[in-house]
């Protein structure tokens, strides 16, 4: 018990003692996951909508692929991204392997099917009558799309939260493509693994607390937006 207790006390000292390196790691985690998530939403929601709202050949295969992607093991994603970004790989010239951009790509690939799959499922639930009513109101394609997104706001934010939870806590892929280089590609999850391995429990606990606070804070903010209007209803 002493080990845990001392670890927590030391962690709090590190957190409130202003240890810059810890916050630097936290910030790096946040921006890498944030950028990956923004791109995943920007690409995933329209793709999910395109699948949900249109009939075309191979649609079922795409839906099944998307659902499979939602459960893709991060290490497999890490392997794929490594293969593409390694010096001899198709995108080797970019020299992105072991940089934060490789980590953004890996997290984007992990987040994309989650955003796509959940927004697709939500849009499919919308009655075709509602879509026709929106068209009859005089909505053009983009206006109609925006109105539909507002109709699935709650589900959409749940998708964003699920994707954020997936990437901020992910360790396998970012370890493989980022390399956990101190001061460059080390993020909260990879740092926790490393500190635990070398027995620096207090630092690992401090990093874990920050990770939990970040995850809670982001989810809380999104929940507030998601639940807006419930009090007034």
């Amino acid at each position: 018990m002493d080990l845990i207790w001392n670890g927590i006390v030391e962690a709090l000292r590190l957190l409130f003692g202003g240890d810059g390196s810890i916050y630097e790691i936290a910030w790096r985690s946040l921006w890498i996951s944030g950028v990956a998530l923004v791109i995943a939403v920007a690409v995933g929601v329209p793709l999910g909508a395109a699948i949900a709202l249109n009939e075309f050949g191979g649609r079922r295969v795409l839906v099944a692929a998307t659902n499979t992607g939602m459960a893709a093991p991060p290490v497999v994603v890490g392997l794929l991204v490594s293969l593409f970004l390694t010096r001899n790989g198709p995108l080797g010239d970019l020299r992105w392997l072991y940089t934060p951009w490789a980590m953004v790509i890996a997290q984007f690939i992990i987040a994309l099917p989650i955003v796509m799959g959940l927004s697709l499922a939500a849009l499919q639930q919308i009655d075709v009558g509602m879509r026709q009513q929106i068209a009859a109101l005089g909505a053009g394609r983009l206006q109609g799309f925006a109105l539909l997104l507002r109709e699935i706001k709650v589900a959409l934010l749940a998708a964003v939260m699920a994707a954020f939870g997936g990437v901020i806590s992910e360790v396998g892929a970012v370890m493989m493509v980022g390399g956990n280089i101190e001061g460059q590609t080390q993020v909260l999850t990879t740092a926790i693994v490393q500190e635990t391995r070398i027995g620096r429990w207090s630092v690992a606990i401090a990093l874990s607390i920050i990770l939990m606070i970040l995850a809670f804070g982001a989810n809380f903010a999104m929940t507030v937006v998601q639940q807006q209007g419930r009090r007034r209803a």
């Binding site: 009558g129 509602m130 026709q132 929106i134 109105l147 507002r150 109709e151």
Partner: peptide
Amino acid sequence: FQRPYLLA
């Protein structure tokens, strides 16, 4: 339409 289909 038969159902009002009001926006949220």
